[in-house]
């Protein structure tokens, strides 16, 4: 199994094929429905984003609050298809890696191929296990969204499967 460093280099990204099992280490940003909406609104108004998208990774999660002494609470992936209306706009602005769970739309897949990006799938409902692979968490933007705010996470050996690759292949049964 390949251990990949985030953010992914272009050559690594393009070498990934749907079905590859990988582990991820490095930094990424969290974001789900509400944060995506705010980022796309900012782009429409020509305002700066909370972090530079260029080559970056977004993980769709809304963790439970960390207890005292913990880095993060339960932090599994949420369903990715809900981000389909926003992802093509973010990819146009440089986003290259998205991590979540489950199948996505045809329009998303086309946009992924055009932007030579990649979508990774993490097993849903294993947030306790995944919390142990997070080594640091820092609030980046939209604090009022609490669990839905944008955080930067440092992860280590985070298990994932390449779900949609940059050549347009996908791994789902339906």
């Amino acid at each position: 199994m390949r251990n990949l460093l985030l953010p992914l280099s272009e050559s690594v990204r393009l070498s990934l094929r749907a079905g590859d099992e990988v582990t991820l280490s490095g930094d990424l940003y969290t974001g789900r429905d509400a944060a995506h909406k705010l980022m796309v609104q900012a782009l429409e108004k020509g305002e700066p984003l909370p972090f530079p998208l260029n080559g970056e990774t977004i993980y769709y999660t809304g963790p439970t609050p960390a207890k005292p002494g913990q880095i993060i609470g339960s932090c599994g992936p949420t369903s990715s298809y809900r981000m389909d209306p926003y992802s093509p706009i973010l990819m146009k602005h440089g986003l290259k890696v998205m991590i979540g769970k489950g199948p996505r739309s045809e329009a998303f897949r086309r946009s992924l191929v055009e932007n030579r990006a990649v979508y990774l799938d993490v097993t849903g409902g294993i947030g306790a296990l995944l919390s142990q692979r997070v080594k640091a968490m820092e609030l980046i933007a939209y604090p009022w969204l609490e669990s839905e705010a944008i955080y930067r996470l440092r992860i280590e050996n985070f298990p994932a499967i390449v779900a949609y690759d940059s050549a347009g292949n996908d791994v789902f049964t339906f």
């Binding site: 963790p63 913990q70 339960s74 409902g125 294993i126 947030g127 306790a128 296990l129 298990p159």
Partner: peptide, 28 residues
Amino acid sequence: ERARHILGEILENQAIARTTSIPICQDT
């Protein structure tokens, strides 16, 4: 093998949740 591996992750996760009291899933 992949299906067995995923079920293995799910089983390991619930064991971790049980002993650490970290929620099984972040969607509570």
